[in-house]
């Protein structure tokens, strides 16, 4: 673990009660949203592949909450929570999972391809490592236009073994791009453990080859994640210095809804659940007298109602019109 002392600015923000409760609420919203998603998948309301963020909430909220509205996020196919954390409407996300016209991608993308231009959630991509070069391109555009924006590129441990990862880190450092690369190290690339796929198992060390800032943080501790991300985002924004942040976390469910989960021991899953980030952060809030049991329960009820409303919205939304099959293949309709 390589963590500097908490900078003063961060300490101030993170001791602010409303900020802390907001972080907790977002984590809870992602958890409840994903639980409901699993339920809807089992009811066949959702088709295709479906990858859940359950277990990774502290990593997601700790990183994405450090961004401004005008900052960009590029993500992968396990991205429902990433979109929520970037402010994308839960209703539009659920509608997309349902394949409805009101979804973030008008039912053309589904679970793996959420998108929101206004929120600068620049997409879920389903080819491992594919979006890292795109994040670099957006970083280049930011420098080109001399804007004070930052790009966050989020991907799994498995992506650090692919060529695009290395090409991206290289140019990010070479061209001084404002990109924060976030490895969501949930220990498995599909069913293959990190130690069976990567020669280096402390993935942050891959930054060293590019003379780039590399950090490793406990991805189950939202405040630790937020603290280090704040610093890396500031470094990207102010000094155009990219960085690689490894968040060590765990997904409680299988790789996707169709994963029988036979490659890891039940004991291992149980041990990680005992370190559950929402549980631990809730205890912290109570210990610090920032929230009572009742407050947290009330918040949970509110969040569940929000998720239920998203399901209702998705369920009642219209399907895409068959006549629109060819819409948006090209930017000019005549070419479609």
């Amino acid at each position: 673990m390589k963590l500097d002392q908490r900078p003063t600015e961060t300490a101030r923000v993170l001791s602010d009660k409303s900020t802390l409760l907001k972080l907790y609420r977002e984590m809870l919203l992602i958890r409840r949203f994903e639980e409901k998603t699993a339920e809807m998948y089992q009811m066949a309301k959702i088709g295709g592949f479906c990858h859940l963020n359950i277990g990774e909430e502290a990593t997601i909220v700790g990183t994405v909450s450090a961004l401004r509205k005008e900052d960009y996020v590029y993500s992968n196919y396990r991205e429902h929570g990433h979109a929520i954390a970037k402010g994308v409407d839960a209703k539009a996300i659920m509608a997309e999972l349902f394949g409805k016209e009101t979804g973030t991608s008008h039912g053309r993308g589904g679970s793996m391809h959420l998108f929101d231009h206004d929120r600068r959630f620049f997409g879920g991509y389903a080819i491992v490592g594919e979006a890292l070069p795109l994040a670099c391109g957006t970083g280049y555009a930011i420098r080109y236009q001399d804007k004070p924006e930052v790009v966050m590129s989020m991907f799994g441990d498995g992506a650090t073994n692919i060529g695009a990862f290395h090409e991206s880190l290289n140019v990010a450092k070479l061209w001084k791009l404002p990109v924060v690369f976030v490895i969501i190290n949930n220990q498995y690339g599909m069913g293959t453990a990190v130690s069976r796929a990567s020669a280096v198992t402390e993935l942050w060390k891959k930054a060293l080859a590019y003379d780039m800032t590399g950090e490793r943080v406990d991805g189950m501790d939202v405040l630790a994640v937020r603290q280090v991300t704040d610093r890396l985002v500031a470094q990207a924004r102010d000094q155009h210095e990219p960085s690689l942040l490894e968040c060590v976390t765990y997904r409680y469910r299988g790789h996707s809804m169709s994963d029988p989960d036979t490659y890891r021991g039940k004991q291992e899953v149980t041990e990680w659940k005992e370190r559950d980030s929402i549980l631990k952060f809730g205890e912290y809030l109570k210990r610090e007298r920032l929230a009572s049991d009742r407050d947290l329960e009330a918040m949970d009820v509110e969040v569940m109602a929000e998720v239920d409303a998203a399901v209702k919205f998705a369920d009642e939304s219209p399907e895409p019109d068959p006549k629109d099959l060819f819409r948006d293949v090209y930017a000019d309709e005549a070419a479609s």
Partner: peptide, 25 residues
């Protein structure tokens, strides 16, 4: 800035172009 020499790395060339286009270039 406007004529950018890249490494010999084709995936990053095309990816950079796409990401820059998505941000308005």
């Amino acid at each position: 800035k406007r004529v950018l020499d890249t490494p010999i790395a084709e995936e990053i060339i095309v990816g950079t172009a796409i990401g820059a286009a998505m941000a308005g270039l």
